[in-house]
Design a binder for these strands. Structure first.
Lengths: 238, 238
DNA sequence: CGACTAGTTGAGCAATATCAAGTCCTGTGG
DNA sequence: CCACAGGACTTGATATTGCTCAACTAGTCG
């Protein structure tokens, strides 16, 4: 099911310590000493936009840290409809439930081409026992997952469709470039609880007003100020 | 801030072990041995409907297990509007973030008269270290909090207002009696992301159709079957 | 070049918000 | 015990929003 791209093992210690996203990632707080406990393979994996990472109900033997890209967690309802429950950005942890459940609870799919680290549950369980750093870090991750859910609810499922689209654009904004990579309209609809047509209309309207500008098909330049005012976020420094 | 009703301490061991909600509550898995580690006071507290348990930003020194009643966790937005992020039912844990943050992240308020156990963070941290049972139980609680959030999003923030109200009624349903205690219309609005008028209209309509029947001002008898069909839940045994 | 998919647009309609009156409880003070 | 003030709830009329259905357009990949 999952796309395995195992790399050479045996150098996890070095690789994790040098990881570019380490300061944000699950293992960020580990000391060199802690790393000595890592004996099982931590693999890098890459998946293309649209590819599945895991599905709800799949056996959960590893959890993931997102290095690059964007992953959506979807909750499928009995009636076949779906709702995106959370978007995970680089630095975030995916599939924490592997630590306390034998199966995943969401359908996880890459929205953009993504790179992740796959960490076996056994590794995390061991570090959880032996490294107070990681133990604390893990609680933080759980907390973050809850906060992210709350945020998702209040930002992406509250207010008018216009507000939600504006907030999504800001959420996806890359601070460095001031641009964002927008998912397909259908995905946007599932994220915001609106129809694809409404999503399309609003984005088209944003473009006409110059609030966003298309650089390529899915790459947009954003007028953050304008978006914030649409989103109902008022500039504190006014 | 919080309503302290300290009871006689020193008998936590006995009191927790005999607790009626113990099988559902945080300490459910503890062995008699584990209880020996509990030296700090675990207090019973009671708060009336409408009273605050804690506020976002309050110093988080304890967490809570709900014994009876109903507590809502609200996220306040910068613009003054609010959104109920989760409802906690008896057996649930409130304020887990105390374990990894020095302040609470929500505004917690009783929707019905409630009884809770207040457990100092130090107690949980100690048991977390010394009892594998509780450690596992804690991870479960975090996971449950995430699942609850997801559920809240998909059930209470998705679909038409009618569906949402129906789902809320079913969510609040007491299995024993087949009845439910409905919060005020304004609270319902904040929970479902609809206006109080819409909530009122829908409930009035449910009453006219006999889908729900008022026993007292806030106590209703439910026709679960009818509600399920409104909620879009189809009887598997059809 | 043509089929296909994603995106856009339009018109009409249904659901929900908004604004504005009422009406019904409930607790309070006479 | 009753009258009344205030809040919670209900209801109506109207404005908006977003959905539905349907057609059309523009890229994209064989």
């Amino acid at each position: 099911m999952s796309q395995d791209i195992p790399l050479s093992n045996g150098h996890n210690l070095v690789r994790c310590q040098q990881c570019g996203v380490r300061q944000m990632a699950l293992f960020s707080d580990l000391t060199d000493d802690d790393f000595k406990h890592v004996h099982l393979p931590v693999d890098d994996i890459s998946i293309d936009a649209g590819a599945m990472l895991y599905n709800a109900g799949d056996r959960a033997l590893s959890l993931y840290t997102l290095r690059h890209g964007l992953v959506k967690l979807t909750h499928y309802l009995s009636d076949g409809s779906q709702r995106v429950v959370r978007l995970v950005r680089p630095g975030g942890t995916i599939g924490l439930e592997a630590l306390c459940s034998d199966q995943f609870s969401h359908y996880a799919e890459a929205v953009q081409d993504s790179h992740l680290c796959r960490i076996p549950v056994a590794v995390v369980e061991r570090l959880d026992r032996e490294s107070p750093h990681l133990h604390q870090q893990l609680l933080q991750r759980w907390h973050q997952a809850v906060l992210d859910s709350d945020q998702w609810l209040t930002q992406m499922s509250t207010g008018s469709a216009r507000e939600r689209v504006a907030r999504l654009c800001l959420f996806l904004r890359d601070d460095k470039t001031g641009t964002c990579l927008l998912p397909g309209r259908e995905d946007i609809g599932a994220m915001l609880g609106i129809t694809t047509e409404t999503a399309s209309r609003i984005i088209a309207d944003f473009r006409r007003r110059g609030v966003v500008t298309a650089l390529t098909r899915s790459h947009f330049s954003l007028d953050s100020k304008a978006l914030q005012s649409v989103a109902g976020i008022y500039d504190e420094a006014a």
